[in-house]
């Protein structure tokens, strides 16, 4: 699991690579701390994300919870059909902006 944070065009973009499962999520949660405090729109790039567990989803919700009251959008970029299914079933498609 690799997490990279980049700032692009007034947005803060988080690139997730690999498997965001229960084992790595505490580490990932630490790594995305700067995203929580950045006063910007957030893009969660999941193009190279293979799998997300409920712990991973919890991290996404945490980001949303910080950004929304400040009036910022959180967008998920996802091309993986399996992942998209998870996001759909869990209702994430209703909470986040989606881009492919």
């Amino acid at each position: 699991m690799k997490t990279t944070i980049k700032e692009q065009n007034d947005e803060i973009v988080v690139f997730f690579e690999g498997r965001l499962d229960t084992a790595v999520s505490p580490q990932t949660e630490k790594e995305i701390q700067p995203v929580l405090t950045a006063d910007k729109d957030v893009v969660l790039n999941c193009e190279n994300l293979e799998y997300i567990s409920s712990s991973g989803l919890r991290i996404f919700l945490g980001i949303l919870k910080e950004a929304k009251p400040r009036g910022h959008k959180v967008t998920i970029i996802c091309t993986n059909q399996n992942l998209l299914k998870i996001f759909t079933v869990t209702g994430f498609t209703n909470l986040f902006e989606f881009r492919s």
Binding site: L57, L61, T88, V89, T90, G91, F92, T93, N94, L95
Partner: peptide, 28 residues
């Protein structure tokens, strides 16, 4: 259904229940 994986109905055939998109409990 609050974002749980859909149950399966088993009789002569196997069918996954249709699921509306709803978010998990405790989010909003």
């Amino acid at each position: 259904n609050a974002a749980h994986c859909p149950p399966v109905l088993v009789n002569k055939t196997i069918a996954t229940l249709q699921m509306d998109s709803n978010i998990p409990l405790g989010v909003m």
